[in-house]
Design a protein around this nucleic acid. Structure first.
Length: 358
DNA sequence: AAGTCGTGGGG
DNA sequence: TCCCCAAGACT
């Protein structure tokens, strides 16, 4: 592998990759058009936070909705918490939305200008090592070593690093630093993303399309798909829980009882159906917010990062229920409540059961 | 520093 | 179907 630098600190790898990026890079909504001025830091930051552990395909609609509704960081900072949480519903990892708002408000307090250095960005809520480096490089033209899962995979293969992740991270970062150019390090980072996404993919890398294949040690090994080596993962337990669908009619309007979940923990800060506490314990206790009588509306299966959930749905119609903390929400505007996917599934189930009864 | 945090798509 | 995984951050 030729990692030697020319006088501008650009390796052969960076030259080849940037050349490929100029013709094969993806055209994405948060990227500046070729030849246009530097991208808006707000849009770069927003896209990077949305893209944390999330696919481009899932992010596009959310990015469009957020930027249409809140065109600037000042506008976002002024938004009510519940509007932003509801707008994030379905995208997952809801701590990101809480940190997003906290960050927007810190930036607004500085007059709406993001810090323009990696260290300054790293101090903001929700910006870790990766995101701070990415924003510094892409939005502010700083040289920064941007390491995400794509870079880990590409670098592991380029240099045939076969020590398992996460132990290999320090070494991967060293190599990433060596091949990162002084100029265009933001484009270089995005080129690595595009390469990792479309060419140097996890399962079956398309080495014939790769601009770096000639010098790739993983390619030379004959089994690039074997890299990066990863530590074995733990088995995913199954939890059981109950959620409760409490419906009433008031003035001809059907309503359902929704609660807001605690800020910390699973689905934190999101609107939800009342449940029996399955998130905090191994299993839920089965107890509901009222004595019932409950009818069963069936079951919802859902997979989280570290466990699977079998959620049974109990329905209570037409009672005089009045909970302590929560709100009656009109059924015909349920899509605006911003339920995370688990509870959106449960709501679909409850409504389907009602239609069957009717 | 390992565990906690969603979700949907693809092989 | 099942398993893997994706532009990670936070504790």
């Amino acid at each position: 592998m030729d990692a030697s630098s020319d006088t501008t600190g650009t390796t052969r790898i960076a030259q080849d990759l940037l050349g490929w990026y100029d013709t094969h890079g993806r055209d994405l909504p948060w990227r500046a058009r070729p030849g246009s001025p530097a991208p808006d830091p707000y849009r770069v930051w927003l896209s990077e936070v949305m893209l944390q552990q999330t696919t481009v395909g899932a992010v596009k609609a959310y990015f469009a909705a957020f930027t249409a509704r809140w065109p600037t960081v000042m506008a976002l900072a002024a938004a009510p918490d519940e509007d932003v949480m509801a707008a994030w519903a379905g995208l997952g990892y809801y701590a990101r939305a809480r940190n997003l708002l906290a960050c927007a408000r810190e930036v607004a307090a500085r007059g709406g200008q993001f810090p323009d250095t990696e260290d300054g960005l790293r101090a903001l809520p929700g910006l870790g090592a990766y995101t701070a480096a990415a924003v510094a490089a892409i939005a502010f033209g700083r040289r920064a070593v941007v390491v995400d899962a794509n870079v880990e995979r590409v670098v592991s293969r380029l240099f045939a690093i076969d020590t398992p992740l996460p132990g290999s991270r320090p070494l991967i970062r060293e190599y990433a630093d060596v091949i990162t150019p002084d100029l265009r390090s933001g484009d270089f980072a995005q080129a690595m993303m595009d390469l990792g996404s479309g060419v140097c993919t996890s399962r079956s890398p398309r080495c014939l399309l790769c601009p770096l294949s000639a010098g790739c040690a993983g390619r030379a090994s004959g089994e690039p798909e074997r890299l990066p080596v990863k530590a074995a993962k733990k088995a995913k337990p199954v939890r059981k829980g109950r959620a409760f669908w409490i419906e009433r009619e008031l003035g001809g309007e059907a309503q359902v009882w929704l609660v807001r979940r605690a800020d910390k923990g699973m689905l934190g800060g999101m609107r939800a159906l009342p449940d029996d506490g399955w998130a905090a314990r191994a299993d839920g206790c089965g107890e509901g917010p009222a004595s019932g009588p409950w009818d069963s509306a069936g079951k919802v299966d859902h997979v989280f990062t570290h466990f699977s959930l079998e959620l049974s749905l109990a329905v209570y119609l037409g009672g005089r229920f009045e909970g302590a903390e929560g709100e009656w929400w009109p059924l015909d505007r349920l899509d605006e409540a911003g339920l995370p996917t688990l509870f959106a599934k449960a709501a679909r189930l409850a409504l389907a059961a009602e239609r069957q009864d009717a």
